[in-house]
Design a protein around this nucleic acid. Structure first.
Lengths: 128, 128
DNA sequence: GTTGTTGCAAAGAATTTGCAGTCTA
DNA sequence: TAGACTGCAAATTCTTTGCAACAAC
């Protein structure tokens, strides 16, 4: 049976508390060490993997790094190339694309969608 | 000045000849060895990187692996979870999404979009 | 001849895994 | 107290890099 270890609970809570930041495994490890200094990186990876498998977290890739997200409902991300922030794109912008693909006889099970560019703030600064 | 080495040319031609298959670095290496048995994996990675930087190839990620594509015009991909094929999705399905994001004040520079599920063949087999 | 490019092997970076000890239910 | 879970370290996997030899121009 599954056990709720301190480590697993801490990792889950940390990802949740980051909410807008979408942390990486390394960032979660750093934050977790402040609470449990003896926690190992292996434990962080193991638990992130388990939490994703259980559907309690989502993971997605931005360039070379994998980020974790406690918001598990369908949504997509926008990465700012200047400040590095990762915004949630709400309103399910890909629903239309899924519909179009299914019209063509494809069965869509998963969608990975990531836009990058400049966020509102950075785009504003640049045009001044 | 840049030189057209046999190796670089071979790698480019191989990716081009794969066209529908979107090979990975390891697959290109295997194919390249049949022509130039002494070619090294380092050379393959170096040249794929250079060709992508020059815009002659595109690379994209599917799960853990990076695939290369000689079709450099804007298009997106669909991966079949059953047979593993990677289809090109033509018709620029994301143009509308870019427009919508820019209406919201974001500046879009790059879009990564990947759908996965069942291709026409596999979806057909499963529903029988 | 100059210098971009190669093959090789070693180094890196991110992640996974084996194992003996620990802790939760 | 059974066995899920941990910390640790070693192993894996993918990719990059340093360097002396090679080859394209």
């Amino acid at each position: 049976m599954e056990r709720r270890s301190q480590q697993r609970e801490l990792i889950f809570q940390l990802v949740k508390s980051y909410s807008l930041d979408h942390p990486t495994a390394a960032e979660i490890y750093e934050a977790a060490r402040r609470e449990l200094p003896r926690i190992s990186l292996g434990t962080v990876y193991r638990n992130l993997g388990l939490l994703v498998a259980k559907g309690e977290l989502l993971s997605f890739r931005v360039g070379e790094s994998v980020h974790y997200d406690a918001t598990t409902s369908t949504h997509q991300h926008f990465v700012c190339n200047q400040c590095g922030c990762i915004l949630d794109l709400t309103g399910d912008p890909v629903a239309g694309l899924i519909h179009a693909a299914e019209q063509q006889g494809l069965r869509v099970e998963k969608v990975d969608f990531l836009m990058s560019g400049l966020c509102h703030n950075c785009a504003g600064q640049q045009s001044q």
